[in-house]
Amino acid sequence: MLSYPQEPYQQAQPGPGPQQPPAVPIGAPGQYRAPGRYAAPAVDPSAVSDGTPGYLPSPRQLPSDGQLPADGPFGLPGRQPPVRGRRKLWTILGIAAGVLLLAVLGVIILLSVVNAATNQARGLADGFTKLVISGDSSKAYDDYLDPALKEQLSKEAFIAGVKTLEMNSSCQPAYNNVKAGTENNTKSADITGLITCDGDRKIDLVYRFEGEALKMVNIKLKPQA
């Protein structure tokens, strides 16, 4: 057995290996934590200009697009206030719709007034013509002729003139054109048409009514040649 001289006993020195880094200060002075357990928050440079440290949000707090949320009321994250241009656009559209509605209503009212006046004029012409066809010319004269026309045409002359037309129950009137309106603040209506009787006899008719009550101021009943 071989033996060698040995050094006096010495405590073994630790060999090379992973070393624990020294503690890193955090927060207030005198407080320490072991490094590697927690990640220190990133400092926002724009927030330390007045000496107050600020921190950026962690990646988990960022939206999917990576953009910071916009500040809402009182500095809280939120949406931007609505753009005034949209409210102005809706106001303009509302005004335009109101003007268009008024225009449409005006056209409808005008057409209603015109149709009412036209129907009134047609009714007057038809009532007068049916009286003279049936031989009741006296009533037609009294009820439909204007006083100014009566001064120019006596009742006797009117009745005699209607008899010369030799109309009977076979005669049927047709109104080709009925025009009613207001001229110089005076209501008026012009009617033209044709009375067709048996034997292919035809009589042209032309009437004109004027005044608030629309009385006949002109009449023409003439057989076609």
Rank of each mutant, 00 (worst) to 15 (best):
L221Q: 03
F209V: 05
M216P: 00
Q13N: 09
G106Y: 09
E7W: 13
G123Y: 08
D198P: 00
A103D: 04
L110K: 12
E166R: 14
D200V: 08
K220V: 10
D200Y: 05
S134F: 02
D71H: 11
C197Y: 05
S138Y: 06
S112T: 14
M1T: 09
G54M: 03
P41L: 04
D65A: 02
A103Y: 10
L214C: 02
K187A: 10
P5Y: 13
R201W: 04
R60V: 15
Q61I: 05
A160G: 08
E212H: 04
V83G: 14
G161E: 15
V217K: 08
V162G: 02
T164Y: 06
P22N: 11
Y55R: 03
K150A: 01
L68V: 08
L110T: 15
V178Q: 09
Q13D: 11
V162Q: 09
L149W: 07
K202H: 06
K222S: 12
N184E: 10
W90E: 09
T118D: 15
P45Q: 07
P69M: 00
D204Y: 12
G75M: 00
D142P: 00
L131A: 12
A12S: 14
L131T: 07
K150H: 02
Y9L: 13
L56P: 01
G199R: 05
A148H: 07
A23F: 15
D50V: 07
K215H: 06
R201E: 09
T52Y: 10
I92Q: 15
A97P: 00
T186V: 11
Y207F: 09
Q19C: 05
P63M: 04
A47P: 00
E151M: 03
R86T: 07
A97G: 02
T192F: 02
D142N: 09
S64H: 11
V114F: 12
P25D: 05
S3M: 08
E7T: 12
D198G: 10
P69T: 02
S188Y: 09
I133K: 01
P35E: 04
D126I: 04
L62E: 06
L76Y: 13
D142T: 10
D71V: 13
D200F: 06
N119R: 13
N119S: 14
G51A: 00
P18E: 12
V83D: 10
M216H: 01
M167E: 05
P22M: 12
G181H: 00
P35W: 03
G161K: 14
P25L: 05
S169M: 04
E210R: 02
R37E: 15
I195L: 11
A213N: 13
G27A: 03
L124F: 01
S112W: 14
A148Y: 08
